[in-house]
Amino acid sequence: MFGIFRTMLAINVVLLHIFNIPTIGNYSVSLFFILSGFLMSLIMHKTYGYNLNGFKVFWINRGLRLYPIYFVIIILTIITITYFPYIVRHPAIFLPKTFLEWSSNFTMLYPNIVPHRFEPRIVPPSWALTNELFFYVLISLGISKSFKRTLIWFIISVLYFVFTYKFYDLATFRYSAIPAASLPFSIGALLFWLSQKNKVKLKPNYYLVFGSLILFYLNSIYGKNLGDVSIYLNMLIGAFIVFELYKIKNSKFFKVDKYIGFYSYPIYLSHFVVCILFLEFSDVGNTVKSFKLNLESMPFYLLILFIINFLLVHIIDINLDRVKSNLKKKKL
C-alpha cells in the first residue's frame, strides 16, 4: 500500500520547488530512495529473480515505467520554453547545445557525481533519477541478494557519511550526490530483509502510520533546530513508515491506492513545466522575477497540475501498466 504515500511525497516536492516551503521536499526525496530500495529488493526476490531472463524483464519494465512519460514531459517542456522563452523559470531549464547535454537529458543519466549540478536539465527534478537508476543497476545485479550483502552495503554507506563530515563537509554530498543516495537505498533494502524475518508479526497499526506521518511533517518543519540530526531522524521515521505500510494488505483499498500512486511520478516530473504554463496564462500569485508562486495561487496551480497529470496517467501510465503486467506473465 504505497501508492498514496508516493503521491504524497511527490506533492511535498512540489511544495518545495514551486511554493518555497522548505525542507519537506528534500526529506521526501530521501524517503523516495528508502522506498525504492525496499521495493526493488522485494521485486527482485519475489518477481524477477537473479537470472538473465529476470534481469532482462526487470529492465524492460523499469524502462516502460520511467521513460515514456518522461519523454512526453521533456518534449512538452522543450515546446513550452521555445514558444514562451521569456517566462522566468528554473535556471537549469534551457535547451542543450552539445550531444552530451542532449543525451544526458533524454536518458536522465547526468555525468556528474552530484547530478543536480549538471546543466541544462530540461526537467530539473530528473537528477534524482540518475541516482535511482544507479542503484537499480546494483540491486538488479545482486547487492541486496542476501542479508549479509545488504548489511555490508549499509555499513559502507554509513562510513561514506562519516567520511563526508571528516573530510568534505558539504551538505550536497549527503543529499543529492550519487553515493549519498546509498544510505537511504540500503536502509530500504534492510527493511526488506526485516520484513522477511518477521512475517508472523506483520500486522499493521494504522495509528502508528498516521502518527509517523505527522512526526515526519513536524520534523520537516521544525527539525532545523536539531541540525543534521533531523536528517537521520527523517530517515528513521521514513523507514518506519515504509515498514508499517508494507503490512497493510487490505484489498478494499488496493485499487484506490494503486490508482492514486499512478500520479506520483508524472507529478514529480511535470510540476516545473506546469508552472511555466501557469505563469504564461495567469497572474495569480506570481512572485516578481521568480519561478516561485505565492500560496494564494496554490488551488489554481494544483488544479492545472491535476488536469495535466490526469491526462498523462490515463493516456500513458495505465495502459503501460497493463503492458508491464502482461510482460511479466509471459516472460517469468
Results as ranks from 00 to 15, higher is better:
148 K>W: 09
312 L>Y: 08
240 F>I: 15
17 H>A: 01
295 L>E: 08
319 N>E: 11
217 Y>M: 14
37 G>L: 12
50 Y>W: 15
28 S>E: 00
252 K>M: 10
170 L>V: 10
173 F>E: 05
144 S>E: 04
187 I>N: 11
10 A>F: 00
136 Y>G: 12
112 N>Y: 05
230 S>I: 01
211 G>S: 04
169 D>Y: 10
330 K>L: 15
69 I>D: 00
80 T>V: 03
212 S>R: 04
252 K>W: 04
269 L>T: 00
254 F>M: 07
54 G>L: 10
206 Y>I: 15
10 A>L: 00
332 L>D: 11
72 V>C: 07
142 G>H: 09
138 L>N: 10
43 I>D: 09
153 W>H: 13
39 L>N: 03
319 N>W: 08
191 L>Q: 07
54 G>M: 08
165 Y>E: 12
7 T>Q: 01
183 L>V: 05
98 T>G: 11
227 G>T: 02
101 E>P: 00
138 L>V: 13
135 F>S: 12
100 L>P: 03
321 D>E: 15
34 I>G: 15
274 V>E: 00
150 T>E: 05
211 G>Q: 07
112 N>E: 04
45 H>K: 13
153 W>C: 12
198 N>P: 02
164 T>R: 01
198 N>R: 11
213 L>S: 08
187 I>L: 13
247 K>D: 01
53 N>E: 13
86 Y>R: 03
146 S>R: 07
224 K>Y: 13
214 I>T: 13
225 N>K: 15
